[in-house]
Amino acid sequence: MSRLSSTIEGWRSFDSFAAAGLISCLDPRTIILSALCTVIAMTGAGKGEVMVLLPLTAFPLTLLVLANIPPIWLVKRILPVLPFALMIGLLNPWLEQGTVTLPGGAEISTGWFTLASITLRALISAATALLLIASVGLLNLSRGLAGLKVPALFITQLQMLFRYFFVIGEEFQRMERAWRLRSGSRRGRMPLKLAAQLLQNLFLRSLARASRIHNAMLARGFNGEVPAGAPLHWRLRDTVWLAGWAGFALLCRFNLPLLLGAMLTGQPQ
């Protein structure tokens, strides 16, 4: 299956999770803000930190559990994201000069901790982004953003993009499939000239589509103002959820796990 086809399939799957589950009872703004808190706390951890990051995985895991998303779905989507961060991170064990003595007495480069830290960061951030959209859904996400005072035109643009990706994407898919069937290539790349022709063709169709949509809007009295969707309701549970996760992120930022662990193992600070 081509990247385009798998994206169309994948995009549909995002919407199917969002409808069910506890997350749909919360205001989308709550989820967006708590995800941001988590990511900011994560990026705030110092270079090479691993322990501080570990508890932050609780946020994406909670979303995973509450939104009933199959873990394998998440794994499949996270894997393609890792290579870039790993590529950058892998240099560290050789570039860094500092060493750390392990309990057994062996000395290793601090770079390994940097690498581990980067990998963990990549996992947490990818999981948070994917689960944010999977648990909230495209539509509610855009409503949440509107509720967070993101300009109305951008929200409309986002919704139009969601809406017409399926239409344009499927037109594209048919053309691409026709090329694949004739070229005999299953995953191959397209020669530039052919790609350009394909895009020109698709561009023309897209323009025609845009002008038909414009007509449809005019026919129903469009005057430049796209009506906003239903207003959102912030409830007590939203405050509790956001305060909880923001507090948790803050505690993680200031090494809560260490405090807890020290208390348990009876070690002095």
Partner: peptide, 11 residues
């Protein structure tokens, strides 16, 4: 419109 996709542009 002939193509309902042109007509249903809202979310």
């Amino acid at each position: 419109f002939q193509d309902a996709d042109d007509q249903l542009f809202m979310p």
